[in-house]
């Protein structure tokens, strides 16, 4: 087993720990912390995949800004000690696990197994660099870029609308 493989296994264990934590921790704060772990680890995995810019963005935007928002809201809502740990015997829980298991197995068997062998790739030297991403973003993807800016405006106006006083 090479160093890279070990690194990947460690990272994915951490990420999975975070993911399991989000779902199964019984307080929202703990879930949020687990999510931070997951996001941070994912950022590192993105580095492994050669997407350095996206890895940095992931850590800054997701693990940083978005999670702060989450924690902020959780604090405001005072629901730190609310316990809604999923009941293992609950019917909903069992059925959802069963359903997810079936879908998981199918996708794993038919989609992921065939890719277990795929390793070698050809890359351009600039893969994942800010220059390349920036260039594409402002040429080919200019229109979606503009639209996403509108989307952020929609988000802002929407939040204001939901929060401001009547009229």
């Amino acid at each position: 087993m090479t160093l890279n493989q070990i690194a990947f296994i460690v990272l994915s264990c951490l990420a999975l720990f975070g993911a399991v934590g989000v779902v199964f921790f019984n307080t929202p704060v703990r879930s949020a912390m687990a999510l931070v772990v997951n996001f941070f680890t994912l950022g590192l995995v993105y580095f492994m995949l050669g997407s350095e810019l996206i890895g940095i963005t992931q850590i800054m935007v997701y693990a940083g800004a978005i999670m702060v928002l989450f924690l902020f809201v959780i604090m405001i809502l005072k629901s730190t000690n609310d316990t809604d740990k999923p009941q293992l015997g609950e019917r909903r829980f069992i059925f959802s696990l069963l359903g997810a298991g079936v879908v998981f197995t199918m996708i794993y068997r038919y989609v992921i197994m065939p890719t277990m062998e795929r390793t070698n790739v050809q890359f351009t030297r600039t893969y994942g660099t800010p220059q390349e991403i920036g260039k594409t973003l402002f040429t080919q993807y200019a229109w979606p870029f503009e639209i996403v800016s509108m989307l952020l405006l929609v988000g802002i106006v929407g939040s204001i609308m939901l929060a401001k006083r009547r009229f």
Binding site: P144, I147, V148, M150, L151, V154, V157, G158, L162
Partner: peptide
């Protein structure tokens, strides 16, 4: 498909509000 997704989100996020 990306554009479709962005459109879907613009549509939906405004509708949620």
């Amino acid at each position: 498909l990306l554009m479709m997704f962005i459109g879907l989100e613009v549509l939906s996020i405004a509708l949620y509000c």
